[in-house]
Each structure stands twice: as structure tokens, then as C-alpha cells.
Nucleic acid binder design. Structure first.
Lengths: 133, 133
DNA sequence: CTTGACTCTCCCCTACAGGGGAGGCTTTAG
DNA sequence: CTAAAGCCTCCCCTGTAGGGGAGAGTCAAG
């Protein structure tokens, strides 16, 4: 099948499929004489895998590595497990940062409601946010 | 004072100060005849405000708006309160997404440890991540 | 007077996952 | 045969907060 059909069956855009070819996560089985990308039915499974991997937070560069292992004849499972373990740990850190930031915003918000705008020092731009000056 | 001194006193780079001028969050008081940026001492306070605002998650574009209000003679406090309220709400959403993602990664991780890599179906690339095929 | 440090503007580069469009073939239907 | 639709490559664009470096002008000390 050609790229347009694959894109439609996959529910995505032709641009995306071309992009996946370019970065090496979904290569066409072959090219026609005129240079058209030709895909087998398995391309649809491959596409779904890429999307599933993206959905759990993997980047296309990482997905490419997984696929390269598979295409090199290895089982990428160990690599994948490592990857998702690390990603989960990164997420823990990121979540903690965001929670801290949100809590600070909330307390800033509460504080701001008790402040009088007319007493805002112009040099500080806004006393709600204090540059520690 | 010239840009180099300001950058050093502020503990940042000349590039950053120039960038802040360009986007309008920290303009020099004047220019010398030769075109050098000249800053007053208040530039340091202004710089600290910008950094403090960034630290609570505001973007430079938003900070510029706050500063524009202040320089226009208004007290930007109301605007700032709105902004941080909205930002906090966005963070709530974002945090919830990340927590869900992390939990999914954790459960994927647990599941993966019970799977046998030798039974991994090559068509699916890796059975740890299931494209739903 | 010259050298070295400082400054200026202008332009390209980064990550991420594509989107938009130009200009030019190829294929398919009528 | 012709027109429309599909496909190709190539290049620029998005947002964020600057970083790197070129080429040229400026300022202070020796």
C-alpha cells in the first residue's frame, strides 16, 4: 500500500508517516520504480507500536533504538524495562517540582489577596512577586 | 553602568541582558553616543523581579505584560493574581496527567518483569508495550 | 599609538514532533 | 488525452530562553 492509504488507515497524516521514515521508526518495505513508498500490512502494527510507545512517554529517538534492537534480531525487552524505569523516576522528580511550584503559586495567591494594590512599590514592579530586593 | 557590569552584578550573562532588552522586559535607561546600553542601579531590582517571576513559572512574555502595565502607570497586581491563579490551575491538570503517566509506567514495569522475553512477538517489536494489535 | 577588553548588530543553532507550501513527477479515472 | 489526485524532495516555520560566533566599532591603560 502507498503512503496515503497507510496514513488514512492509521488515522494520521502523510507528513507524519514520511517523518517516521526519515527518522527511522517506520521505513517502507520498498520503493516503487517511480520512488513511491510502499508499505506492507505490518506497517500498521508498527505504527500502532510507535504510538503506544509515545503514549507512555517515550520519545521517537528512544523508540527508534528499541526498533533497531528488534530489527537487529535482539529482544529489546530489557532495554525497554530500563527505559520505562528511568522515565518513571524522572517523572517522580518532575512531579515533585511541579507540586512545589503549584503550592507556591497557591500561597502567593492567598497572600496577594491580603495585600493592598495601592501600596505596591513601583520599583518592585509588583509586590505580589518579590524579587528579594 | 554598562551591560557587562550589570550582567556580572546580576550573576548572569551579557547575552541574557541583551535578550531581555530585545523582548522588552529590561530596557536600558539610555544609550551612550556610541550606542552602548547604559543602565541605572534600578536595573538590578528589575532584573531580580524578572527572575523571581520566572521562578514562579511565568514566561517572559507574561512578565513583559506585567512590566508594561507598571510602566504604563497601573498597578499590575490584579493581572498578576489572575495569571498565577490560572497557572496554578494549569499545573493541577498537568500534574494529574504526569501522575497518571507515571502510574502507568510503574504498572508496565511490574508487568514486564513477569513476562518472558523469549515469547516476545517480533511483529509487535516488544510485548512490554502493546500497540493493541 | 597600540593592544586588549568591551560592546554593537546580525545571523544561525538547540530540542520536539511534525505542519505548510513550492515546484515537479506519476498514476488513475473519465 | 486530459485533468485531478497523489506522490516526491527540499526548505522554512512553530515555541522557549537564550548560546555561539562573525565582523566591526569603542574605550581605557601602558
Amino acid at each position: 500500500m502507498r503512503i496515503g492509504e497507510l496514513a488514512e488507515r492509521a488515522g494520521t497524516s502523510v507528513k507524519t508517516i514520511r517523518y517516521y521514515d526519515r527518522i527511522g521508526v517506520l521505513r517502507p518495505a520498498e520503493r516503487s520504480e517511480s520512488g513511491y513508498r510502499l508499505y506492507g500490512v505490518d506497517a500498521l502494527d508498527r505504527y500502532r507500536f510507535v504510538r503506544a510507545a509515545q503514549a507512555v512517554g517515550l520519545r521517537l529517538g528512544e523508540i527508534r533504538e528499541i526498533i533497531a534492537l528488534r530489527d537487529g534480531g535482539e529482544t529489546p525487552c530489557g532495554f525497554v524495562v530500563d527505559l520505562i524505569g528511568r522515565r518513571a523516576a524522572e517523572l517522580d522528580v518532575r512531579i515533585a517540582e511541579l507540586v512545589a511550584l503549584r503550592d507556591e503559586l497557591r500561597s502567593l495567591d492567598r497572600r496577594a489577596r491580603r495585600l493592598d494594590p495601592r501600596r505596591c512599590d513601583p520599583r518592585l514592579v509588583c509586590h505580589v512577586i518579590d524579587g528579594g530586593a
